[in-house]
Design a protein around this nucleic acid. Structure first.
Lengths: 139, 139
DNA sequence: GCAGAGGCTTACGTTAACGTAAACGTAAAG
DNA sequence: CTTTACGTTTACGTTAACGTAAGCCTCTGC
């Protein structure tokens, strides 16, 4: 039997991760992970002094990093993560949440358009570059 | 006859823009535009001291802002803009350019995947929020 | 002739997102 | 028993991307 995930030994003991394990997996530094905790984006458990990360913590980290790839600030990523929580109390807050979701959707749609046009331009640039290359070779 | 674009009077006099015109159009400050110039992203002409922006300058500005929406740094945007220039000299540079284009494409594809998943999660979040709302209303 | 309305330069200030380093604790390995 | 590996806190440093403000031209309308 192959060794299991990271720290789980036998049955269903809910895997946990050390800070350096996560750092390695996502190619970031431990400093970065602690920084995110400082900013209130993750709240790992503690065994004594040492941080112990749950699978949920790991998912949060993933969401943060995905946000980064999309150019989101940590505050924006926090907002998005909060949309996931079942913690939205009253009706007014729910309405605000829905508005917020709509805004994010609009932003993502703009990004889609931006990517589409940029992709086209990259195609053009490649075509021109290949043309220049061809001309350079048989000159 | 309706008044033409910004500063062009009669025939084909190649429109030009003042810094504040561009600032208004793109909803940024003049400081920001000058900052981009400082960083070598735009190089407007001068009439005396005053900056005079051509349509090409305006396009560059647009590209920078699109880059920002995609989370690019100014350096990255500069690289992308440079891909457009017909200034790639020798063969080696052309090969590097092609590699660069491929990298950007890969990055954009990752962003596409990220947007897709985030969109799906926004849908889920909306569904849950609407469910909570419905339950709150007929409780 | 002077008050605005722009425009310019120079320069210090600010925020986000970490980097870097010091100084210390602890547990397993040789 | 002392490396070695990993963990912790605290704190100052750094870079990008502007914001903000001061001080100074210059043209246009009244």
């Amino acid at each position: 039997m192959k060794s299991e995930a990271a720290s789980t030994a036998s049955a269903a003991e809910a895997a946990s991760y050390s800070i350096s394990e996560l750092a390695r997996e996502f190619d970031i530094t431990t400093r970065t992970i602690r920084f995110y905790e400082d900013k209130g984006l993750i709240s790992p458990a503690r065994r004594g002094q040492t941080r112990v990360y749950s699978p949920e913590d790991r998912v949060r980290l993933k969401l943060i990093l995905r946000g980064k790839r999309l150019g989101f600030s940590l505050d924006e990523s926090r907002e998005i993560i909060d949309m996931y929580d079942p913690a939205h109390g009253n009706v007014e807050q729910l309405h605000r949440l829905l508005q917020h979701i709509e805004q994010k959707r609009a932003q993502l749609q703009q990004q889609l358009r931006d990517i589409e046009s940029l992709m086209g331009e990259l195609d053009d640039a490649e075509t021109r570059a290949r043309a220049s290359l061809a001309q350079a070779e048989n000159k």
